[in-house]
Design a protein around this nucleic acid. Structure first.
Lengths: 270, 270
DNA sequence: CGGTCAATTGAGCTTGTTCAAGCTAAGTGG
DNA sequence: CCACTTAGCTTGAACAAGCTCAATTGACCG
């Protein structure tokens, strides 16, 4: 069982291991996970990634392709809650009892790894530190989820799309995908619309609206970032929430320019 | 230092302790927190709750009143990301390095407790289990945040408001506030609008729209749930995500009625 | 070549916004 | 106790962002 991981060719691919490390997984914890890999499989675009009985108590790591966590509403519409990129842990329900009642499905053809929870050993650096790491991953998801909720709730379609493109640019860069000047838009415009609370039609128009002032360009399913500062400005994008930059200024909380401290008491000294 | 907690009258109030227990805090962990309480203070409505230098490395627990985590956008609008009710841990930034760049402020007059992180001891059941507990709290917040994002992204104003009212009813019931037939709406309609990505004006109209068919009633700042099943139906509300019910059907994942498993391959056996 | 999927475009319409004005209850100073 | 404020709720009317429906195009595929 110990060296089982070697039987899966892509598993030792550095990408996701480095990603785990960046989430604070110790060397022991990542090895622990490697040893618990029970399957590597491919999932066609638009199919669900959820362990269908096959490995019911496993964590799933996305190795290649883009995936999402989504919810279908009674009226048939879909909301995409979370976007997963290569290296992301896209299903860890086996580790937490929370019942989020969302599905996970492939936005493009994907490769995923199933990691059996009961093969995570209980030695130090084992199961427990994996649980800790997943908690940290969850915290990261919260940050993105929060930012997205803010986008959907209070930003215009134009800002929203710009913001998502900024996020994608940086997240992809962090995993060595895309180039400085852009990236391949692996997902569908409809998928993007479902992430942003928009209609595919309106998303399309907004994309074109972003092209007009020269912020981006769209060539053959690729997004070209034509004016990065301009795009960031249009979105009021602050990358801090992605937790990707140097942790240099960490622990320095910065709040919006608003002194919530003291709206002057009426009639104060006036 | 050990019995410091007793110097703060409300701290032993059972509410929040039971809440912590429900989040899986052990008896030791809750005692550990009790012993680390360094202050109890009141915050007036509309003021920020954030530790202003006073106790910079403390967790904050909301004892009384309603509060929220919010973000101010460049154009001056506000989005409320999270609503905190009595017993909720409303600021645990001291425990996780994540930089969410949101403020926390009081929606009504509040009482909060500051719990110094460096007074959490390192014995078993101490700091570490508090961190674990907070991770579980975060997971719970994710569930609510996700549901809210779905609301804002894909539900109509009518459904959105209905959904929030359902959520409030149950969350308040869980902490012994409100009655079976309704609750006092402590927050402002504008606050509510800022949670739902709506305008205060439209929220008001929607509230009235919910009253018309007899789903709710509004009397003197109180929401009366006039037709609970009807309200749930209007919102397509499924309380599972709140994690309040008996954990009887836990581990039984239920997904939306959609076989993501296999959209028939074109021309399959046809 | 027929078929499907995604992107695109047009036209009309709805939902929710904006701006503006009253209204009510509660608090404050004199 | 009354005039005066203020915060929050309510309402109207014009407006606009984004939606719906529907049709077209282009690329790819068996």
């Amino acid at each position: 069982v110990k060296k089982l991981a070697n039987t899966f060719p892509d598993v030792r691919n550095d990408h996701w291991i480095q990603r785990l490390r960046s989430y604070g997984f110790s060397r022991e914890a990542t090895n622990c996970m490697l040893n618990a890999v029970v399957a590597e499989r491919t999932v066609a675009a638009k199919r669900d990634i959820i362990r269908n009985g096959a490995y019911p108590d496993s964590i799933v790591v996305l190795m290649e392709g883009w995936a999402c966590r989504y919810r279908l509403l009674p009226d048939g519409s879909r909301h995409i809650c979370t976007l997963f990129l290569p290296g992301d842990v896209c299903d860890y329900a086996a580790l937490d009892e929370n019942d989020v009642t969302c599905g996970v499905s492939a936005l493009s053809d994907c490769t995923v790894c199933d990691i059996a929870v009961d093969r995570l050993d209980d030695r130090p650096g084992g199961r427990k530190s994996v649980v800790d790491g997943v908690a940290r991953i969850t915290a990261g998801e919260v940050a993105i989820l929060t930012e997205r909720a803010i986008s959907i709730g209070r930003r215009s379609a134009f800002e929203r799309v710009a913001h998502l493109l900024c996020e994608l640019t940086l997240r992809l860069k962090a995993i060595g995908h895309g180039t400085a000047s852009g990236f391949r838009l692996v997902m569908t415009q409809e998928d993007m619309a479902d992430m942003l609370g928009l209609t595919a039609v309106h998303l399309n128009r907004t994309l074109h609206a972003l092209r007009a002032p020269g912020l981006i360009d769209i060539v053959d399913r690729h997004i070209v970032i034509a004016d990065w500062p301009g795009l960031q400005a249009a979105a009021a994008f602050d990358e801090a929430y992605l937790g990707l930059g140097e942790p240099s200024s960490a622990n320095v909380r910065h709040f919006p320019a608003h002194d919530g401290a003291a709206p002057p008491p009426s009639h104060a000294f006036a």
